[in-house]
Every structure is written in structure tokens, then in C-alpha cells.
Design a protein around this nucleic acid. Structure first.
Lengths: 209, 209
DNA sequence: CATTTAATAATAACGCGATATAATTTATTA
DNA sequence: TAATAAATTATATCGCGTTATTATTAAATG
């Protein structure tokens, strides 16, 4: 069936933006935003300024994004793609499963320590008032890539792995890594032990605990 | 020696605010701010509004605090005092060191899960631009109270404890707990396993890893 | 081409955090 | 009490995110 039963409303006037057109303009905006945010920081770049750089009005920005923070959220996907591409590369460089788990864990943490600004943008820029912001809701494909950790945990545990066990261990490892990153980045004045030792200990705890 | 060698500048006019006066006014402001922030949220309360409630002008607020966020930072100390008073109470309820470590760890996490808004205020309200904000720099007394975790780790490990080892383990445990809290609070839409299991696993990993 | 409808621009406005400046009040000394 | 210097007020300003309104432009149809 290609035709509907009831009469279709005859299209008049300028048509609504196609998905492609919509995506293209959103891409133009986020590309520009990414460059500016990285160069000058999220808060330093105003919507007025971004509009000028994109070559449109502020109102047009608000047609494609409800809020400024939504433009940033769009960039988070880019960040995680880059991060996990990097981790995949690391994972390929060793055949020993335990060593591999250590390597990607260390790589994950190092990424955030090497990109503090990005960490702030991803994990600390949500508005306090909108409490229930969940970062990954709109990006199922990104969530999928976190499976790398559970897979690596399973392989590192070998035959001794149980189903629910590995989910728990993988989630805990991720929480621990995020916690280490968060503390080292935000409470930088405190005399933390080396990231290397903390990661090593976290992985060991997951494997032996 | 009570007198200085060079001539003291003769004090004329209204004297500078004493430390006590300064502290009192700061206290008046933070008391009022705490009430308002808890009732309506940090961003919902403007400096103009806060000034009106305190009974002064906006300019006076800015005399006692450089920025709005500094008023909030002052409240963080209150939060941690309350939290650790609670944890001390928990710690007293059991004699078994391992059980005690589990209990305070669970209590620490539960506090943040029960006070999500507070968690946001403490851990997620720093401005992205001022990257190097370290939360605890000004509150050495608060830092001290985190020693509860290392002490508990040492007691739980018993004779097998080594010096540097316990520092590492205590730091890792705190990172893991903060990571769990952060993930569960901010990425609430994801299907995390239960906080109880995550904490239990984190503590086990620290003790056995 | 005329009509229609969506996209965009242009403009103004609101409350916000923050800053600057000029009164005015307050608490001290001579 | 007069002079003085700090605290405070009053007021204006700035750029910000965001919203609203109105005019203009662009792309389709008949």
C-alpha cells in the first residue's frame, strides 16, 4: 500500500525542511561550535557570537537546537567516537586479555587527563537545575561502544567468568575509572597517587575481587 | 614586642570590618543562601533575589563574596560535616572492621543518592571556564575527615596492611564510590545494577585486589 | 505569475551575573 | 562637633541565554 485511505493534504507553499537539510544545518552549527568551544571554551562562546560565525541569526540557531547545551551534547558523540576509536586501536596491540584490559583502562583514563577541557564539557557542563539530564539517552550507538569494557573483562577473566558477574565488574570498572578521572581532574590540588597505580589497582580489584 | 619600630599610621575614620564582623555577615548571607538554594535550587536564586532576602544590595553581596559560586562553595563545608557526622555514627554501630568498611561505603554512596541536588551542587556546579577549581583547597578540616576511609581500610585489612598500600586502596575506594555516585546520578536513564551490589563489589575489590 | 507556507532575519525585550561610579550612611578620631 | 575613611546604597551599564513579535525571503503549488 503506497496510498492512504483518506485524502492527503495537498502540499502547498514551501516544503518543510527534509531530514537531510535539517541534519546538514545542524552539522554546520556543531562543526562551528566544536571549533570555537575547543579554542575558547563553552561559556566563552555566546549564542550571538556562534550565530555570527555560522552566518545566521540567533533565532535560526534556536530553530535547530532548543538550548545552547544541546549543541554541546551533540558534540559529546564526537568525543566518544574519537575516544573509543583510540581504545580499539590500543586493544589491538596486545593478545593477552589481562594486559589488554589494563591497557584500555589506562587509555580511557589517560584520554580524560589529556583532555581536561573535554572532560569538563562532557561531564560537568549540565545545568544544575535540570537534574535528570542523562547524557547518553540520545546516543544508543555510543552506549554500545562501552561494551568494549565488558568484553575485555570477560576475556580477562577467562573461563571463570559468569554472566551477571561480568556486567557488575564491567560497570564497577567504568565507575571507578570515571571516579578517578573526576577526582584527579576536579580536585587537582589534592595529592593523589599516580593515575597508573590507581588504574592498575582498580583493574586488579575487578579481576580478583 | 607589642609596638612596631616604625610609626603606625594613625587610624582615622570608620575602621575596617573586623574579622568577626566579616564572618558574621558572611554567615548571614550563607545561611540565607542555603535555605533558598535548598528550597529553589542554585540557579533559580539570583543575586538580586538573595540580596533582597538578606536585606542588603547586590553590591554588598559582592563585597563579601567575589562570585555567586563562592557563596555555594562556602556551603560545601556544611554538607561534608553533615555527611561525615552521619558516617561516624554508622561506623560506631559495628565492631567488625570489614563490615564497618562496607557500612560506611554504602552510607557514603547512599547519602549522595538521597541528596541528588546536593551532589549536583557540590560536584557539578563549578564553571567550565575556571577549570582548575579544586573543591577542598580552602577546607583542610574537611579533607581530614576523609581519613575515616583510610582508617577503615587499614582496620579491615588487619595485619596484612602495608603503608603505601592502604593509601592507594583508600583513594581507589573513594574514587570508585564517587564514580558510582556520579554515574548513577547523572546517567540515571542507563540500567545500572543496584547501588548495593556496586558498592559491595567495590569494597571487595579493594580488600582482595 | 499569484498564492501559499516555511525558513529566516531583524528587532526588542526580560532577568541574569557582574562591574563601575557616584552618593550616602556609619563609625571612628581629633 | 567637625573631619575622615570605610561600608553601603543607588543607579547605570554590559553581555549573556532565551523568548516573542513582526517583516522578509525562499520554495513549492495552481
Amino acid at each position: 500500500m503506497t496510498s492512504k485511505r483518506s485524502a492527503l493534504p495537498i502540499p502547498r507553499g514551501r516544503p518543510v525542511l527534509s531530514d537531510a537539510e535539517l541534519a546538514e544545518m545542524r552539522r554546520r552549527i556543531t562543526d562551528c561550535a566544536q571549533r570555537l568551544f575547543e579554542e575558547e571554551g563553552y561559556h566563552a562562546v555566546s549564542m550571538r557570537r556562534l550565530a555570527k560565525e555560522v552566518g545566521c541569526t540567533v533565532m535560526t540557531l534556536y530553530r535547530y537546537f532548543d538550548r545552547k547545551i544541546d549543541i554541546l551534547r551533540e558534540l559529546w558523540a564526537h568525543v566518544f567516537v574519537q575516544l573509543f576509536d583510540h581504545l580499539d586501536q590500543i586493544a589491538q596491540q596486545t593478545d593477552d586479555p589481562v594486559e589488554r584490559l589494563h591497557a584500555i583502562s589506562a587509555g580511557y583514563l589517560q584520554y580524560w587527563l589529556d583532555n581536561r577541557e573535554t572532560y569538563f564539557l562532557v561531564f560537568m557542563s549540565s545545568d544544575v537545575t535540570q537534574s535528570d539530564v542523562s547524557i547518553f539517552v540520545d546516543h544508543e550507538d555510543i552506549v554500545q561502544r562501552f561494551a568494549l569494557f565488558q568484553i575485555s573483562v570477560i576475556e580477562a577473566l577467562g573461563a571463570s567468568a559468569e554472566e551477571t558477574d561480568t556486567t557488575l565488574k564491567a560497570q564497577l570498572l567504568l565507575c571507578a575509572l570515571n571516579g578517578i578521572a573526576h577526582n584527579l581532574v576536579t580536585i587537582s590540588a589534592y595529592s593523589w597517587l599516580s593515575p597508573h597505580d590507581l588504574v592498575q589497582s582498580a583493574v586488579s580489584g575487578v579481576l580478583k575481587g
